[in-house]
């Protein structure tokens, strides 16, 4: 064995040792399925800044408006459905807060109205959430839709979220909802 081969063998043994040591050390850091991470918004920390709409890597954000019906007051004059200066409470587009018309309003019984979100239309701008949170019960909230989310290694919205509301969660609480609390 010449000198070059000897040095190379020493290097290989050292490199192998490093890989084994690093692998062993890092194995203690893994935590089975609980170690899996999914991105979720903490709805109570969210300030509806509007960046969820613009900063997601998807052309239309994976963040959608969710509706916690059990928190909703079923108001006729809904702060999330109507613009603040609305005159007539009808479904005309110019009265609606939602720029894409993703909120559907259905009469239930006097004086209650049910609101549902059409997720395929929602763009995650959070305008309705802001209205509902400011003037209503806060039953509308923004959340990451898991079947759309690309599970980026680092969420691009989380990077710019001013209130650090976007966090990694484990599979068992893959959704942070408002009506569970």
């Amino acid at each position: 064995m010449d000198r070059r081969d000897f040095l190379r063998t020493c290097g290989a043994i050292f490199a192998g040792g490093v890989v084994l040591a690093a692998g062993g050390m890092l194995t203690t850091k893994t935590k089975g399925e609980e170690g899996d991470v999914f991105w979720q918004i903490d709805p109570f920390a969210c300030t509806q800044c509007g960046r969820c709409e613009t900063d997601c890597v998807l052309p239309v954000s994976a963040v959608k408006c969710f509706h916690a019906n059990k928190v909703c007051g079923y108001c006729d004059l809904c702060g999330g459905y109507y613009r603040p200066s609305v005159k007539d409470l009808n479904t005309a587009a110019e009265n609606q807060m939602c720029p894409t018309g993703a909120i559907q309003r259905k009469f239930v019984e006097e004086p209650y109205f049910e609101y549902t979100i059409d997720e395929s239309l929602c763009n995650g701008c959070g305008k309705c959430v802001k209205g509902c949170t400011s003037f209503g019960n806060g039953s509308l909230f923004l959340q990451v839709l898991q079947d759309l989310c690309q599970q980026c290694n680092e969420c691009q919205i989380a990077r710019v979220c001013p209130s650090n509301a976007i966090q990694r969660v484990s599979y068992k609480d893959a959704y942070k909802l408002k009506d569970h609390a």
Binding site: N69, K70, G73, Y74, E109, T116, G136, Q146, D147, A174
Partner: peptide, 21 residues
């Protein structure tokens, strides 16, 4: 801010499911 509505028409809360990861 607004109380939970007491429905008399037998309205039930919709069961909303979201896509799983």
């Amino acid at each position: 801010r607004f109380p939970k509505p007491d429905f008399t028409s037998g309205y039930e809360y919709p069961d909303i499911t979201h896509g799983v990861p």
